[in-house]
Nucleic acid binder design. Structure first.
Lengths: 200, 200
DNA sequence: GCACTAAATTGAACAGCGTTCAATAGTGAG
DNA sequence: CTCACTATTGAACGCTGTTCAATTTAGTGC
């Protein structure tokens, strides 16, 4: 039974998060459970609760790793040799690819609802900020006659919009009118938004 | 025990959906369970499974009623005496109000993930279409030099975008950069999008 | 080498979940 | 009054998150 000090707390944390990612990838994010994780890493549930406050805590940490993973995915896939507009489009295509190809973990990321009165931890918002930074950077390249605050706001608005499109297409799969793909919808959003944004 | 024919199947369906809505409103959408519903309507779980295929079926039907409710809310709150741009803004404000004030049922609506290989029923997509119709109508009022298909697509893109903003602000509550409210973000999206859309 | 302490780990227990289905109770017909 | 039919039940199954007394282990001092 107990194998005291086989792994440090930090090692157990890593093992558990690795296992959680595998379970999510194979069984979908609803297939995740404390007992499955424990079994996969050769410990029992009790141990998990020494390392994580609860399953919500674990899920936030999984989502944190998904954000890191997403950041890497986006930076790998979109070069910055092009102009801002193209750069934004390629960023968006890369994001939609990610949502489609890594849909279980992307769903978990998007699905998370912050409980009433709760807030996301700072380190989590920092990881989110890093991803937003990519959007801001691309946006800044194609339009520089707005002040910093306006640029940051525009980046957030645009990205929330792109995310909304992903949700409607990938999560809900409904196909109302038009029959555009998520990518086509996102392109329409970006093209039109940018046109409006530059003519202000 | 059994009170045969006290209620028709259709009546039980209504009772159950009413009860489900109340539970969601008071306990949050994660607090919903078959046993709670059964208890609230004076039947047992077994009966629920005669009326609904499973809990997923019930939830889709709750969401259907939420869509009806949302449609009524939107039509009550936004007059159509104004021009298209103002009309779109008022529609959006009404939608955000709904998401904020009816957040448990709105969360359930937004949270629903269509299982792999599944699709939303036709009657559900029809209800969704009715809500989209309001957006299309407003959009058509402020811009009529695009063909029908483009208008429908623009309406969908814009609304998915507004919804994305709601999700990032209301569900995730994160407050990255800018510190705008959901309404301010949505206004920025609509103003900028419409400017770009009319200058095409 | 041994006893002791303190920490790591367990796993049974609790209250809940969705779902099923044999058994039961109530109804209307003959 | 009995029969057949069906609406309804509720126990059972296997799962869930979470807790915590009990147990095993590692390391220290002797």
């Amino acid at each position: 039974m107990a194998r005291r000090s086989d792994h440090s707390r930090e090692e157990i944390r890593h093992l558990a998060l690795d296992a959680a990612e595998e379970i999510i990838a194979s069984d979908g994010y609803k297939g995740l459970s404390a007992r499955k994780i424990a079994k996969a890493i050769g410990y029992t549930v009790g141990t998990l609760y020494l390392v994580f406050k609860n399953l919500d805590d674990l899920i936030i940490q999984v989502n944190g790793r998904t954000l890191d993973n997403l950041y890497d995915w986006l930076t790998e896939r979109h070069g910055d040799s092009m102009d801002g507009h193209q750069s934004l489009l390629s960023l968006t295509r890369a994001y939609i690819d990610y949502a489609e190809q890594e849909s279980p973990r992307w769903n978990l990321l998007t699905d998370y609802v912050v409980e009433n009165g709760q807030e996301l931890p700072d380190w989590y918002e920092a990881k989110l900020g890093k991803v937003f930074g990519l959007v801001e950077h691309s946006l800044a390249e194609c339009n520089s006659h707005h002040d910093d605050l306006t640029m940051r706001r525009a980046a957030r608005v645009l990205w929330a919009g792109v995310n909304g499109i992903c949700i409607s297409k990938i999560r809900h799969r409904f196909s109302l009118a038009g029959g555009q793909s998520a990518t086509e919808m996102a392109e329409m959003l970006i093209d039109t938004f940018l046109r409006g944004f530059s003519q202000q």
